[in-house]
Design a protein around this nucleic acid. Structure first.
Lengths: 343, 343
DNA sequence: CTGTTAGCGCGTTCAT
DNA sequence: ATGAACGCGCTAACAG
């Protein structure tokens, strides 16, 4: 590889001059500059990023650790982060923690070793807050996305309880009283908040809560499918099911279909988070749709801000999801429900 | 940050000794090692990846440039790459070229500046083969994934024409004669190959080809939707439609539905590439499903091989997709079609 | 405006 | 088995 020294020699100038024309650090005479530029093109010289970063002690790269790259929501978030990072001239280092605490720790370690300028973390279910705190204390800029935790850190996620409350209230308005909730793992703050929204809706409507209709536990596809099937097979089954995340909503629809039930006639369904192309499901799912791309973008923006001004006030951003109203809840699709009406 | 010097001082040894215990480069006396290890733990020392990489002239990181992070297939590929990279102790640098040639070039440049040890490239539609050649000539290991091009480079993709031929033959066997193809951008080799499969099927069946039924052009959702709509509105419409990629298949189904047509009674549909959860569509799509995750994994494996032994023979890997047989093609789902029967 | 030079933090000969 | 010293390629502070 050709180095800055080669270029300098070829152009007949000193290395610092080359450095200055490359970085625009100091003014350089027209003729000298021409010779340098020529030499650069002749050799195809490209600065050595590592040496530069070592010297400048910043890498212009950030690390993104995601708990499950496989999920659609996260894929969209990654896109948002990537786009914003690129726009700012930053390179993205991606790591998948696969919902594994140890892997999360290891990934963060690897990224820090690479001296990323900042960290974006969508952390795993039960990761310790101390992990984040220690990173922060080391002075490494960090922003939490999607899954929020301690308020002393910049973070961006969506409103959870509000939208869920609207969803449930909508079903109540339609006359449903036995509304089941497939809540998933309530140790995940996001899911806990959604459950709160469910409970709130009942309280506001002054309706009794049937704890037997609230199912918590692992939210993976098989678990959710089992949960939905159990609910639907019960002696006194619910007339509607609300689920708290995409895997669960798909599983619910599948379970209803496999039991030969018609949605929404036999069982109404509404959900938080639906897959892309859910418009082609029959019936189409009434659901809360997260602005995943924007979460990623906003997270990266927050991180850039923190990198540039380390002492900026800490901020928690909550993005507002939108509600897509379809047929699965059992009313004509031209009726609308909005989040605003809930405010 | 604590450096190797700090550790050495604290342990009362020289830096080279510390280096040796960290990297296991040379044997170190038991007592000395103990002191060093202790000092490392006390300080929380972590090697400076940049300095190390600069010295060793390798970064243990690879770059992945994808033409469209947004598409499901690519999201899965990324997962495959990431998993394999992590297992090998490599860090993944991700860039999205967003189907833009200039962006692709810029991304590659940025990654090379970071001195990645190798490059994985799912390149944009009309990228020049020279780009890849020049990278190869510079001695930077590179592997092409998904979209293959010149045979002098390691690459991994799927079989395209074979599976497409099977799909079309299946429709022919069902009695269809007017089978339309929504082919997309045939400048993309992958899509060109699929079109070949379509043509092959007709040739083998000794049936005439109606060129009016082959639609090429941009394969984005609106274009495909328009194409499908046009076909369905024609004076003498096809009885079946085959599409060459996911966006197109979804658009086709949507178009049929919007025109009030029943699938497969009014129009049969089969496709290359269906979205996850397509099982919840009505009717479920008969489709070729790509092993996207495996493509990513295999690509990374090939790259690791190339990094470790630069002179290994060049290899092109074709993975075999599987065919998921559902209702949209118009026959009972318990009948099966397999790729093997086509071989 | 241009050149000289000292590190950034580490791995690695080469002595001892 | 351990240590001293050099240099990977670059930027920046200083000198001229």
């Amino acid at each position: 590889m050709t180095t800055i020294v080669d270029v300098a020699r070829l152009a007949g100038v000193s290395v610092s001059t080359v450095s200055h024309v490359v970085n625009g650090t100091k003014p350089v005479g027209a003729e000298t500059r021409r010779r340098v530029v020529h030499a650069i093109e002749a050799t195809g010289y490209q600065a050595h990023g590592l040496a530069r970063a070592l010297r400048r002690s910043r890498t212009e790269s950030i690390g993104l650790v995601v708990s499950d790259t496989g999920q659609e929501v996260f894929a969209d978030m990654i896109r948002g982060v990537e786009q914003e990072a690129r726009a700012a001239g930053f390179t993205l280092l991606l790591a998948n923690s696969a919902e594994d605490r140890d892997l999360e720790v290891a990934s963060i370690r690897a990224l820090r070793e690479r001296r990323v300028d900042g960290l974006l973390l969508a952390h795993v279910a039960r990761s310790s807050p101390d992990l984040v705190r220690s990173i922060q204390q080391d002075g490494l800029p960090i922003v939490l996305i999607d899954r929020l935790s301690i308020p002393e850190v910049d973070q961006v996620g969506v409103e959870n309880s509000g939208p869920m409350k609207v969803l449930v209230r909508h079903l109540i308005d339609l006359g449903h009283r036995r509304i089941a909730l497939i809540a998933g793992d309530v140790d995940v703050p996001t899911l806990a908040e959604r459950m709160v929204g469910y409970v709130d809706a009942f309280q506001e409507a002054q309706l009794p809560l049937d704890l037997g209709l609230m199912v918590t536990g692992r939210g993976l596809a098989p678990d959710s499918y089992a949960a939905a099937t159990a609910l639907l097979s019960a002696a006194h089954p619910p007339t509607a099911i609300v689920s708290a995340s995409m895997l669960m909503s798909v599983a619910t629809l599948q379970a209803a279909r496999d039991r030969g039930l018609t949605v929404p006639a036999d069982i109404a369904i509404a959900t938080f988070d639906a897959p892309a192309y859910a418009d082609l499901f029959t019936p189409r799912l009434t659901s809360v749709v997260q602005p995943a791309f924007q979460i990623g973008r906003e997270g990266m923006r927050l991180l850039l801000r923190r990198i540039r001004q380390p002492d900026a006030p800490v901020r928690t951003v909550r993005l507002r999801p939108r509600i897509v109203h379809r047929e699965s809840c059992g009313c004509p699709p031209d009726s609308t429900i909005t989040l605003e009406e809930a405010a």
